[in-house]
Amino acid sequence: MAVMKIEYYSEVLEMEWGVNVLYPDAVRVDRPDDKDIPVLYLLHGMNGNHNSWLKRSHIERLVRSTNLIVVMPNTSNGWYTDTQYGYDYYQAIAEELPRVLKRFFPNMSDKREKNFIAGLSMGGYGAFMLALKSDRFSYAASLSGALSFHDSHPDDTELARPAYWRGIFGELEDWTSSPYSLESLAKQSDKKTKLWAWCGEEDFLYTANNHAVKNLQQLGLDITYSHSPGKHEWYYWEKQMERVLAWLPIDFQLEERLP
């Protein structure tokens, strides 16, 4: 598995920007779809960046024997949205980045059925939001996702100051009915995307996950949800990432761990 760190000028963000890519080795992988390789976009959480999955997990080991391109973009703390302060992260990731990467990797698939997205915490919200809004991804997974501000407002959290939340989402009266909520996006989606969510039962986002998943299921989305003992930590996300990869419609082959 080749690890590539790419810097490019983003016309959308009007700055130099970075993305990391895992690309399957031709020597190790010889599959019929080599000219149409599936793609997984893997999103970081709050206070992370495009290096987070490489530094904090064993994602390279997990996919080493699988014919899959893994794309790890950056959104800073922008929640993968077109923010109120002028940085259009949604456009940069959903629209611009696939075009940029296609020039680097002509063999990466641009078919919806072969494009997937997953993320943790803030990235869990980003994965569902991008999948529901862009119609680019057929499968989307959330690990301990910040899927809802259940019975609250972003300002009520201890994650950041009110000015920060206003810079992301603007002035909000009610989260569930806001254009940024997954419920609002679900009402406009075609309901074709398959969703998968997990959250640890000791996670501070557990109640929000239960609330959001129930709402999304009631709106007709195809969502698989599970929970188990766990906290908001990389140890649990890495374990669940194996389940995500096994769930995707790819020929996932996990290398055996060394004793």
Score class of each variant (00 low, 15 high):
Ser57Trp: 01
Thr81Arg: 12
Glu60Asn: 09
Asn47Phe: 12
His50Met: 11
Gly78Trp: 03
Asn49Glu: 06
Asn51Ala: 04
Gly78Lys: 01
Val63Thr: 08
Asn51Gly: 02
Ala26Cys: 09
Arg61Lys: 13
Tyr80Arg: 00
Ala26Trp: 09
Ala26Asn: 10
Trp53Pro: 00
His44Pro: 00
Asp25Asn: 15
Lys35Glu: 15
Pro24Ser: 07
Asp36Ser: 13
Val21Asp: 03
Asn47Arg: 08
Leu62Met: 12
Thr81Glu: 12
Pro24Asp: 06
Ser57Ala: 15
His50Pro: 01
Tyr80Gln: 02
Pro73Gln: 03
Gly48Ala: 07
Arg28Gly: 11
Asp34Glu: 13
Leu62Gly: 02
Gly48Cys: 07
Leu43Lys: 01
Val27Gly: 11
Ala26Met: 09
Thr66Cys: 08
Asn51Lys: 02
Leu40Gly: 01
Arg31Phe: 13
Pro73Thr: 00
Ser65His: 14
Asp34His: 14
Ser65Val: 06
Asn74Tyr: 05
Thr81Tyr: 10
His44Ser: 04
Val29Leu: 13
Leu22Pro: 01
Arg28Glu: 14
Thr75His: 03
His58Gln: 12
Val21His: 01
Arg31Cys: 15
Pro38Gln: 10
Arg28Lys: 11
Leu40Asn: 03
Val29Glu: 11
Ser52Val: 02
Asn49Lys: 03
Gly78Ala: 10
Asp36Phe: 11
Asn51Gln: 10
Ser65Tyr: 13
Ile37Met: 13
Ser65Met: 15
Ser52Gln: 11
Met72Asp: 04
Asp33Pro: 06
Asn74Arg: 04
Pro32Asn: 10
Met72Phe: 05
Asn49Ile: 00
Asp36Tyr: 10
Asn77Leu: 05
Pro73Met: 03
Pro38Met: 10
Asp36Lys: 11
Lys55Thr: 07
Ile69Leu: 04
Asn47Lys: 08
Leu68Pro: 02
Pro32His: 10
Asn47Glu: 10
Val39Gln: 04
Met72Thr: 02
Asp36Glu: 14
Asn47Tyr: 10
Met46Leu: 13
Ser65Cys: 14
Leu22Tyr: 04
Asn67Val: 01
Tyr41Trp: 05
Ser76His: 09
His58Val: 06
Asn49Phe: 00
Pro38Asp: 08
